[in-house]
Design a protein around this nucleic acid. Structure first.
Lengths: 219, 219
DNA sequence: ACAAAAGTGTTGCTGTTACACCCATGG
DNA sequence: CCATGGGTGTAACAGCAACACTTTTGT
């Protein structure tokens, strides 16, 4: 009787990054049944001696070999038939990382970044989880979670890159002149003095965020 | 060995409401050990056949006798020593309700509304949970979760009442003229044609939110 | 009449929007 | 020299911030 209150839990990690203004997510190819060959979110069962935060950090480390990141809890998924074998309750975490730091780490494990708008075949209910959590991420970007934006753009970026990201998240275009003016006039970004130099076209000015001005700022 | 992955879960419900511009929370007095006589959040263990959403609704119903409410997930608390006896993982939900609807329902169960700034002695880690979740609620109000504001003020209210609530959440005063102007000029509220009539002072105009204008509006 | 609470107008500032052409680089 | 992508100015409008006195009611 008492046993009917003991549940299996897992921590699911949704690692996001930006690449050329696109929102990306880091997935893992499943090597065994069920869902062998499908892509899945990195996850780990929760044992009775670990907190969910510790568990999420462990997963993050195993996927990226990095220790620190911007990470926080997202939704819990408790549908009875999430897993074909057992009932497992999934506690999701959002992590935001610098894609360039993880590009190296793709040794033998099959892991890859996917555009959130072009996902591969996903196992379990992970398509649904990604959809729901991605909605939350977008909403938070739009609605002003500056910390999160800083996590997406920790290092130098161009204003067109940033604008591109916003446009993808918002789902509509923004006027380039107004966008530029806003960030430069309000000193939300600082000119690093460097320029991009990839391919054709005029090189872009590289900026970084002005932490002072961004703090608590409504964008 | 496998048993070390089975955890006890509970759903915790934080029911909020407004009263005279103050943010209130609905608590229950614990009738047995441990923490007998202390106040606690309403909660229920999660069995293996119920989703957390169903569980949260069950708790809400038992506390208010109401079926519908604005409710959503909040944080998960997984510290190892939350409960003196077992490790229990707590999944919290936020519900927002109309305090006047629940005032009736205080029969024999010892339940009461408390100002979130003046809480009683709380059992378990519930003081901590209330603090964390209340921070989230305030942040969401400030940052634009209009749905939530509508849930707090479903029916007629005066602008001074609404302003009072904002001031308590923001922690700083707002100019009355500017506040009034904003809501009336932008037609975020609609005059119901009724007036308050409680005690001394000029009666206030009763408004309700203009759902059209509030939708997606940044406040 | 007085205490309590609600209602209201003006002005300057700041940010947003709408709009089209020029500049720097690589091929 | 052309294709690609980056950078830029102006004017009208909307919302926000700062500011104090009047009106309506109950006692």
């Amino acid at each position: 009787m008492e046993n009917s209150y003991y549940n299996l839990l897992e921590t699911l990690l949704l690692i996001y990054s930006v690449d050329e203004g696109k929102l990306k997510i880091y997935l893992k190819k499943k090597q065994d049944e069920p869902y062998k060959g499908y892509w899945t979110l990195p996850s780990a069962p929760l044992d009775t001696q670990t907190t969910i935060e510790e568990n999420a950090h462990k997963i993050y480390k195993s996927m990226t070999n990095l220790d620190e990141t911007y990470m926080f809890q997202s939704k819990v998924f408790s549908d009875l038939n999430r897993d074909p074998n057992n009932r497992i309750i999934g506690i999701s975490f959002i992590a935001i990382t610098d894609k360039t730091l993880t590009d190296i780490k793709q040794d033998n494990k099959e892991v890859a970044w996917f555009d959130v708008e072009e996902l591969p075949k996903l196992g379990f209910d992970h398509a649904n989880i990604i959809e729901e959590v991605t909605k939350e991420v977008k909403r938070k970007i739009i609605v002003n979670y500056n910390d999160m934006l800083l996590a997406f753009f920790p290092s130098d970026f161009t204003l067109p890159e940033l604008q591109n990201f916003y446009e993808n998240v918002l789902g509509k275009p923004i006027d380039r002149r107004n966008f530029h003016k806003k960030y430069v006039n309000q000193e939300l970004v600082i000119d690093t003095g460097f320029k991009t130099s990839k391919g054709s076209g005029r090189p872009g000015t590289l900026y970084r965020f002005n932490l002072e001005k961004m703090k608590g700022k409504r964008i």
